[in-house]
């Protein structure tokens, strides 16, 4: 079947890409001056050459780089991302523990930004020279230019001191469970501000893109056909035009996923959200290289998966694409 073949090809291609990213990350870290034993020596307050040689042997750092790479890749294939210097826990379990919080944050802001962004874009395209369109355009430029941390901090100030109605830090208020529904509501309330500040930049992009794409599509011959059929303007707009105008937006969603992940580092730090982003930020400060390397690997994996899903989604929204 064509779809099965397409999926198989895609998965092989994605696997190759993950491997390439893995090697690149590994080599980049090795190319950087210094050596993990120096960091350790610094922490221990100095060490003799003998101990250092022993450590290098213990960590496998005395082996040729190619061989180290093979060992590293082999470990990763068996699901072993190494141990965190700081937590003394397997990096895999550190990541998996924080993954749900980040996924929740990313999905929430993705949905918010796509839904609100495209809606604003469509509204702006109805009367391209109208007041509403101008307002949305200005708002989009502001939203796009505002750095995520700044938007986040403004939201914190607004909702911590001016209107203290939403929590501005963490993911849960109380450690004691109040039953599944109240717990979910609690998490949802905590989610609002981080998701909004992460969504803001994306929203601006989706609205700009949708507006431009709609204006382009509205000039198409098939829109004239739809009008000549006697369809109401609403149907022409939301059925015939939007269905076509949404295609470039779908592409961008996939490409934006990496940016959202990067944004999550900032947002999670600002809002003290216990996800991968904050782990990455803390690991940089702690020079926890195995955790960092694991996070880099994992985030590239997520980005590749997101892009594959986008390609797959594209096949469903655009019937003209039938070959992988």
């Amino acid at each position: 079947m064509a779809l099965a073949g397409f999926l198989l090809r895609r998965i092989l291609y994605a696997a190759g890409l993950v491997l390439a990213v893995l090697i690149l990350n590994f080599v980049l870290i090795r190319l950087a001056p210094g050596d993990p034993t120096e960091t350790l020596a610094g922490q221990m307050g100095g060490m003799t050459e003998e101990i250092r040689a022993e450590l290098r042997q213990a960590y496998g750092l005395d082996l040729p780089m190619a061989q180290q790479l093979v060992i590293y890749v082999g470990r990763i294939l068996s699901g072993d991302l190494g141990y965190s210097y700081f937590f003394n826990l397997p990096v895999t379990s550190l990541i998996l523990e924080r993954l749900p919080a980040t996924i929740l944050l990313l999905l929430a802001s993705l949905i918010v930004s796509v839904v609100i962004g495209t809606t604003l874009g469509v509204l702006a395209s109805r009367k391209p020279q109208g007041l509403l369109s101008q307002l949305i355009t200005v708002g989009s430029v502001v939203g796009y230019s505002a750095p995520v941390f700044w938007t986040g901090m403004l939201l914190v100030i607004l909702f911590a001191s001016v209107f203290p109605i939403l929590p501005v830090s963490g993911i849960r208020s109380a450690a004691i469970s109040q039953g599944p529904w109240l717990d979910m509501l609690d998490v949802a309330r905590h989610l609002v501000l981080p998701a909004l500040s992460l969504a803001f930049v994306q929203m601006a992009q989706y609205s700009r893109l949708t507006r431009a794409s709609m204006l382009d599509v509205l000039g198409a011959d098939y829109i004239r056909t739809a009008r000549a059929k006697g369809l109401a303007e609403r149907t022409v707009f939301f059925k015939h035009a939007l269905r076509n105008a949404i295609l470039p937006v779908v592409t961008i969603i996939g490409l934006q996923f990496g940016n959202m992940l990067a944004g999550a580092i900032v947002v999670e730090t600002v809002f003290n959200w216990p996800g991968l982003g904050r782990l990455a930020f803390d690991s940089v400060l702690r020079r926890d290289y195995p955790t960092l390397l694991g996070l880099l690997f994992f985030s590239s994996f997520l980005v590749i998966v997101a892009n594959q899903l986008t390609d797959l989604a594209y096949r469903f929204v655009d019937p003209r694409i039938k070959t992988g």
């Binding site: 011959d221 004239r224 056909t225 000549a228 929204v317 019937p319 003209r320």
Partner: peptide, 11 residues
């Protein structure tokens, strides 16, 4: 219309 190639909605 004149342009049968583009007068039908592609999706």
């Amino acid at each position: 219309f004149q342009e049968p190639m583009t007068s039908l909605n592609p999706v």
